[in-house]
Design a protein around this nucleic acid. Structure first.
Length: 262
DNA sequence: AATCCACACAACCGCCTTGTT
DNA sequence: CAACAAGGCGGTTGTGTGGAT
């Protein structure tokens, strides 16, 4: 049994598994005194029988004070879908655009919600078909939901979660007829109107630092409303619709147009 | 009431990158 | 320049929980 005395330089039996309240407290207090970073040193000196990696993960994913808890807002979900379509599984990079959310949280969201949909459709989540389905159905639904949750009438049963304010902020003009997002400041994500909506209808302009979508060309009115959906994922995406859409896509062939734009 | 199952999320693992000596 | 350590990242696994049967 190694003694606690001089544990700095000794091998200690490392703990694994869920963190206890006591461990959390120790970690919080140590970081309050010494700041975060130098995780291996922290692990040795704090008295925690954890690896530096484990301490870092616990702090970043759970204990850090500015973390948001609770469900992702439609705005956040929209951003995740958008950024993932651009960057793929670059979770930490995506997380930079969702203040208070961790890469782990976003990764879990993607795996449990988004990949599940792909699995159920028998589609590869990274396939173009699935990406198009996300753009054609899922994202408009989120936009719709975003407009509902910002309903000024106050009839919305789910009050708005805080909108990300840094480094980017999504602003949705709920009252506008063209269903576009507009910038309110230089760091705002802009889903603006395209001069060539046919071309940009479903294609992000990746040259734009805030990658503009021509969402005006996507008329949410043509999609069933959220309330029309069954008990599918958050009422945003009906499996029947997607099967129908996929069938249509298959029948018309890869270059045949239809709802899945190439 | 018991069991099963799916889901959400916390935590771990291994690899890669970066910084330091 | 090489070797090493630390940190970061993405993939994967383990576990608690709630709903369905």
């Amino acid at each position: 049994m190694p003694s606690q005395k001089g544990a700095k330089c000794e091998e200690v039996e490392l703990r694994r598994g869920p963190w206890t309240l006591e461990e959390d407290t120790m970690l919080i207090h140590y970081i309050a005194r010494h700041a975060e970073g130098r995780w291996n040193l922290l692990a040795r000196c704090s008295g925690l029988k954890r690896t530096g990696k484990s301490c870092r993960l616990r702090w970043l994913n759970y204990l850090k004070p500015d973390l948001k808890r609770g469900n992702l807002s439609p705005e956040e979900q929209f951003l995740i879908l958008e950024l993932h379509s651009k960057w793929g599984n670059r979770w930490s990079r995506i997380a930079q655009y969702l203040p208070g959310r961790t890469d782990n949280e976003i990764k879990n969201y993607w795996r449990t919600r988004v990949q599940k949909q792909a699995r159920q459709l028998n589609i590869d989540a990274n396939s173009s078909i699935f990406r198009d389905a996300v753009r054609c159905y899922w994202m408009p639904r989120l936009l719709e939901k975003m407009s509902l949750t910002s309903d000024p009438s106050g009839t919305n049963p789910n009050p708005d979660p805080p909108i990300p304010s840094h480094p980017q902020q999504v602003v949705y003009n709920a009252g506008s007829s063209d269903h576009m997002l507009s910038p309110s400041n230089p760091s705002t994500t802009c889903y603006g109107q395209s001069s060539n909506s046919a071309e940009l209808a479903l294609s992000p302009n990746y040259d734009d630092p805030f990658f503009t979508y021509g969402l005006d060309a996507l008329d949410p009115a043509t999609f069933p409303t959220a309330s029309d959906c069954g008990n599918d994922w958050e009422g945003l995406w009906s499996m029947d619709e997607l099967w129908q859409a996929r069938k249509q896509h298959d029948e018309e062939g890869e270059g045949g147009g239809g709802i899945f734009l190439q």
